[in-house]
């Protein structure tokens, strides 16, 4: 078996495995039960997406996918940090409480 054919089989297999893990993480996003659980699952979703992009870049040979992966990693990190700050400030409940306090 030639190297290219082996790589092609590996890439197809990896795409299948990544799809399954993507669905498992989505189940965790939907199930929750708490806000940090969902944020963690979204963070993991970004990691799986970076894997997807790497495999797609391998299959197509387009080098631009590297930049896409780096940009997605950066955005995912910033999103998680922002979400964590939001949880630290009290999350949704604090905003509701503030809204109720403001009411006359």
């Amino acid at each position: 078996m030639s190297g290219a054919a082996f790589l092609n089989i590996c890439a197809t297999f990896a795409l299948g495995v990544l799809t399954i893990s993507f669905l498992l993480v989505v189940v965790r996003v939907l199930k929750g039960p708490s806000l940090p659980d969902r944020i963690l699952a979204l963070d993991m979703l970004v990691a799986v997406a970076i894997g997807f992009i790497a495999v797609l870049g391998l299959r197509s040979g387009v080098t631009l996918y590297v930049d896409v992966a780096i940009a997605l990693g950066l955005v995912g990190f910033l999103a998680t940090v922002a979400f964590a700050r939001f949880v630290m400030s009290g999350g949704v409940d604090a905003i509701k409480e503030e809204a109720e306090e403001d009411r006359p």
Partner: peptide, 23 residues
Amino acid sequence: DYLAGALIVVGALFALTASFGLL
């Protein structure tokens, strides 16, 4: 090619165990 193929399969399996653990 062989190295890259092996690496993506192992990497994908680690991603699968991570999401399995998440569940």
